[in-house]
Nucleic acid binder design. Structure first.
Lengths: 259, 259
DNA sequence: AGAATAGTGTCTTTCAGACATTATGTT
DNA sequence: AACATAATGTCTGAAAGACACTATTCT
């Protein structure tokens, strides 16, 4: 094995033409996706059921190999399109982290770059080009289940990232449709944070944040009660001041004192 | 996990035992490090000068190949120790992101996992096992210079991450020595944020955050003025409420309105 | 005594969180 | 008229930011 050092020297001391596959450790690089969407006012994640060893029959995050001439985000977006049959290049996608424990895959050394995708509502998994079973799973249930590989960890990191993201980014707005009501926007927050939010305070804060949403002037008319104003996503990327979820547990954790 | 997916296509049709290097694209995986420290009250980053093609003579972030049987963080820590001759396993190290543009290295397909390391004061680069030149460079100067590969981007992301991190983590405290004064702690923030901070407000906020620092009872006596109280890092990991740098530019960016 | 640095307190404004009533449409 | 949902305003407490003076040591 080329070990880092040896390889390193090559990297710095060997002309490009001398590069040889045998000179460096053979890694496989994959992408895995935490794809989140809202269904029935609850946050769901897309899981696929493995039909091959290892972890046969277990559920896992969707993902796949990065092609040799393909960028990492391109690979993630390709997999996303394959799994959701939604190839909207507007779909929000951000890099979550890279997982490369030498034993994470029993077959070979695989380094996986994990991505977080968010969309307001996605269709039922069409299975894309793959024949395996695929399903939207409510995130609390998914987090409790035993996923293949280190996907439990990746999912957990993805959920935490999504929750934190909504605090300071206007993502949730674009993440609704083109026009949405304030309660629709609020329900996104409630689903992701898995918490109730006071409509009055929420309203005040969203409107106070310049560029978060803009009123379209139209209203809904889908029966029921009073028609709601419609909004569109604004131009700002950040929320000022940030919306904050109650950090109850955190506050307790800081109770540590030295007396 | 990744491989899961990765292997996907192959996997669905190929038993594990059939795995063969020829079956998947040959990637090299490296780690690159943004190592930050404070010198002369200014934030500095460790850069190394390349002595080989490509980018010969240009400055770059330190880094190297990941060994085939080595975890990603282990590889980062090994490189860190080699470059700084400080093998303190306590040194703060967090994953920054992964960079894998197909053209980022002209010689071959390299995916690099970037890491952020922070330490209060590190010795002059001993060069470790490498003979290349290595130096601490003030970060504003480093960010303006033209680094090899995509290291400009990595450095920029690392700096932004470090600045954001100080807002809500107690990192800066551990990142000082075992005992430190309030103005030393403050100067860490000032160096990283490249801004002045009001000593009175800073003091109030740090002390209000339970578990951020604890008074040791001792005082300094290094001449000059009144001896300063000494503090040690507390047990809390997060700052509540967070310290916030003035987000001037952000506030202006939100000035967007739809009238 | 003077120089140097540490340490502290008050005021004002902004934001967070709690909370109840009115408005406007449909059936 | 009843029902359903949307919309809004006020009060209180916490924290942010601005700001000036006192305290302790050394020389």
């Amino acid at each position: 094995m080329p070990q880092g050092r040896a390889a390193e020297k090559q990297r710095t001391s060997t002309p490009a033409s001398d590069y040889d596959a045998a000179d460096y450790p053979p890694f496989a690089v994959t992408v895995d996706l935490v794809i989140l969407t809202i269904r029935d006012n609850r946050l769901h994640v897309l899981l696929v059921q493995r039909d091959e060893t290892p972890f046969e029959g277990q559920w896992a995050l969707p993902g796949g190999f990065v092609r040799i001439d393909e960028g990492l985000q391109t690979a993630a977006r390709r997999e996303l399109a394959e799994e959701t049959s939604v190839s909207d290049p507007e779909l929000y996608l951000e890099q979550l982290g890279t997982y490369g424990d030498p034993n994470r895959d029993p077959r070979m050394r695989v380094v996986s770059v994990a991505w977080l995708a968010l969309a307001a509502s996605l269709p039922n998994p069409s299975g894309g080009t793959d024949a395996r079973d695929a399903r939207w799973v409510e995130t609390n249930a998914a987090a409790r289940s035993d996923l293949a590989f280190d996907h439990d960890l990746i999912l957990s990191n993805g959920l935490e990232r999504a929750r934190a993201k909504l605090e300071y980014s206007t993502l949730a707005a674009e993440f609704c449709g083109a026009a949405f009501t304030m309660s629709e926007l609020r329900s996104i927050y409630e689903a992701v944070w898995d918490a109730e939010i006071d409509p009055r305070n929420f309203n005040r804060k969203v409107l106070a944040s310049n560029g978060f949403v803009t009123e379209t002037g139209d209203r809904t008319n889908r029966g029921g009660g009073r028609p709601a104003k419609l909004f569109a996503a604004g131009t700002a990327a950040d929320v000022h001041p940030p919306l904050r979820r109650e950090s109850v547990s955190v506050q307790e954790s800081t109770k540590v004192r030295n007396d």
